[in-house]
């Protein structure tokens, strides 16, 4: 076979691989740009899920606290509002294609830094 007649020079191969990788990371940036390159349908679905899930989790926490403290329905009302706020925040963050890190301020800061680097 051809491979056996021509044993590859490993050092040379390694050198070429390293050069190719360096070139690639120069072109694409160190972090893969565009972590979520989803289709339009996927993107829309993601936003809907993010928003609904925030509301559901908020309502669930409120319901649990109400059962715990016997304060029906006040905790659920309060946490439904918090849940809606966090759902909007999640959806906004996903729409801005910020990363999925916790903490809006941190995500905002990182997005600004990424913009400045460009």
């Amino acid at each position: 076979m051809a491979e056996q007649e021509l044993p590859p020079n490993l050092d040379e191969l390694e050198e070429r691989l390293r050069a190719a990788r360096a070139r690639e990371s120069e072109e694409n940036g160190p972090k893969s740009a565009g972590r979520h390159s989803l289709s339009g349908l996927g993107q829309g679905m993601r936003l809907a899920v993010e928003f609904v899930v925030g509301v559901v989790v908020g309502a669930g926490i409120g319901w649990g606290l109400d059962r715990w403290f016997g304060t029906q329905p006040w905790m659920m009302v309060l946490f439904l509002v918090f849940g809606t706020a966090s759902g909007v925040m999640n959806a906004y963050r996903a729409a801005r294609r910020m990363d999925d890190t916790v903490g809006f301020a941190a995500a905002q800061k990182r997005a600004d830094e990424a913009d400045r680097d460009k």
């Binding site: 679905m45 899920v49 918090f82 916790v102």
Partner: peptide
């Protein structure tokens, strides 16, 4: 206001992660 919102946002992660795969 901020802490409950961020906590809910954090707790909603496992749900949104699972719902996305399941729904698709």
């Amino acid at each position: 206001v901020l802490i409950p919102i961020e906590v809910i946002s954090y707790l909603s992660r496992p749900l949104s992660l699972s719902v996305r795969l399941f729904a698709n």
